[in-house]
């Protein structure tokens, strides 16, 4: 019996990032298990400490990305665990499911208050893969178990989506700051609404939003694809680019962690803190 925290990675029909996501959780000192969408009993019996909804195309984005997945029975369990305070992370398609589940922004639990709409870029529609820079919101850094180690430097991560533009009902626009978790910026940390710094036209440059308590985080970029330093492109500017390039042809490149690892280290650190408090 291990006493490492257990992270459940949910596999919906059409998910496709479940294996690498589970792998980086394990690399971060936690246990990870992948549960298929219909393994409700197995999931609830194993009493996970946290949940990750990985990227992919659940139900092939039919009707609307995340819309059908959000209505699967397994989401009832995630919904209740989220309300009880367990950390839940949705990456890309996982974020779309969380939004369509009404877990984020979660002003009224279960109510659909946001949407991840189709990217809005002049002269272009459809899927977009590219590297972006992110910054964490100050309050989010303090309260979210997923963000505590992120720090203030802009971090490079890749996006890969066709529907990643956060939007809200106009009446809610004045309360967005409560749910702001991650915003797009340039390598110097400067935010602008212009493409490609903001790659999809997202409202207030949002790359990730959370619920009020911060335990549920929905983010469009893929931290598991920036977990290792060697996953960062050779042309990335800024300090992470310097760090990466200083390891050119250095065997240490193989084991060196990248910026995406900070999200998973944050969670491990959060569990350490809880277990210290428990003692």
């Amino acid at each position: 019996m291990t006493n490492k925290p257990l992270v459940a990675v949910l596999q919906f029909p059409g998910s496709n990032c479940e294996y690498e996501t589970a792998s980086v959780v394990r690399e971060s000192g936690m246990d990870a298990m992948i549960f298929r969408w219909n393994q409700l009993k197995e999931l609830s019996d194993s009493r996970p400490d946290a949940f990750i909804l990985p990227g992919g195309f659940s139900f092939q984005d039919r009707v609307r990305a995340g819309a059908v997945g959000a209505k699967e029975e397994i989401m009832d369990l995630v919904f209740n665990e989220a309300l009880s305070g367990k950390p839940v992370l949705g990456i890309c398609n996982g974020a779309q499911i969380l939004v369509e589940s009404g877990l984020v922004p979660g002003w009224e639990n279960g109510r659909i208050e946001s949407a991840l709409a189709a990217n809005h870029i002049h002269g272009r529609s459809g899927y977009l893969s590219r590297w972006v820079f992110l910054r964490a919101n100050e309050r989010a850094l303090k309260i979210s178990p997923w963000l505590r180690m992120i720090g203030n430097d802009p971090i490079p991560v890749p996006i890969a989506h066709a529907e990643g533009r956060f939007v809200f009902a106009e009446k809610d626009n004045n309360r967005i700051s409560e749910c702001m978790a991650l915003t797009y910026c340039d390598e110097n940390g400067i935010e602008t609404a212009d493409y490609p710094v903001n790659p999809n036209g997202s409202f207030m440059n949002l790359a990730g939003i959370m619920n009020r308590e911060g335990n549920v985080l929905a983010m469009m970029p893929h931290p598991e694809r920036a977990f290792w330093m060697w996953q960062i492109p050779p042309w990335i500017p800024g300090t992470w680019g310097d760090r990466r390039n200083s390891l050119q042809h250095d065997p240490a490149l193989a084991g060196s962690k990248g910026p995406g690892a900070l999200f998973f280290r944050s969670l491990a650190d959060y569990f350490e803190l809880i277990s210290r408090e428990d003692q």
Binding site: A67, A70, S101, G110, I112, A115, A117, V167
Partner: peptide, 16 residues
């Protein structure tokens, strides 16, 4: 109209 998780499917009124 998708208003809650278990209500509606075909459109998300926030963006559509």
């Amino acid at each position: 109209i998708t208003s809650y998780r278990d209500h509606g499917l075909l459109a998300n009124p926030v963006s559509q």
